[in-house]
């Protein structure tokens, strides 16, 4: 019976259920976004122009590539190519770090213009701008937090693969880590057009 030895499908199911909770967590924010965008369409439109589309696009592509690399590392470990798998996990973590660096500069630029939650400048701009940037910082911030968690998770996966705790016939954990990483990507796929592309 499945209790005696490990249950890969059960473990994957656990990961998926956890992903659902994350989707619902962001779901609450998407509801908020939908409501305030409906109430302040013009302001959201104008505020969105403040965001840097090229950086956003580059970051989107970075995340997409990182998603592909982690998926390939799962393929690699199944083909018993340990080195390649390790390299791909490392690549994913590095891409994640690049994403965060970009994000840092992006946020920094906004702060320099006096745009941050609770700032006096922002309060003068009006309701729509306060809410747009409130949501922007809150949602991208929470997303960035998930990136950091994802990096830690993948860091563990790297060590496990290195120590042969995860091998070609026991890789479910790596797949789960990958699922988490794809979730982070998935959320960004929606954040990007909702914040950057409503000009």
């Amino acid at each position: 019976m499945s209790q005696v030895h490990r249950d890969d499908i059960g473990s994957k199911m656990g990961m998926w259920l956890f992903i659902f909770t994350e989707l619902l967590l962001f779901g609450g924010l998407f509801i908020t976004y939908a409501v305030y965008r409906y109430l302040h369409p013009e302001a959201f439109h104008l505020a969105s122009q403040e965001l840097d589309v090229p950086i956003g696009t580059i970051n989107t592509i970075i995340l997409l590539i990182s998603s592909a690399t982690i998926a390939m590392s799962v393929t690699a470990i199944q083909q018993k190519k340990k080195k390649l798998s390790l390299g791909l996990i490392a690549a994913t973590i590095i891409l994640a770090a690049v994403f965060l660096v970009n994000k840092y500069f992006e946020w920094g630029a906004k702060f320099d213009h006096g745009i941050f939650p609770g700032s006096e400048y922002l309060d003068q701009l009006g309701y729509g701008d306060v809410l747009f940037f409130g949501l922007y910082f809150f949602m991208t911030g929470l997303h960035a937090f998930h990136i950091i968690i994802g990096m830690v998770v993948l860091g563990f996966m790297y060590v496990y693969v290195k120590n042969d705790r995860l091998t070609h016939d026991n890789f479910q954990l790596l797949e789960n880590g990958g699922l988490y990483w794809h979730l982070v990507d998935l959320i960004w796929i929606f954040l990007f057009p909702l914040f950057y592309l409503i000009a």
């Binding site: 939650p117 309701y127 306060v130 809410l131 809150f138």
Partner: peptide, 12 residues
């Protein structure tokens, strides 16, 4: 002090 639910800042 973001203002999501603060009527003074446009929140609902």
């Amino acid at each position: 002090n973001i203002g999501f639910f603060d009527p003074a800042k446009g929140g609902d």
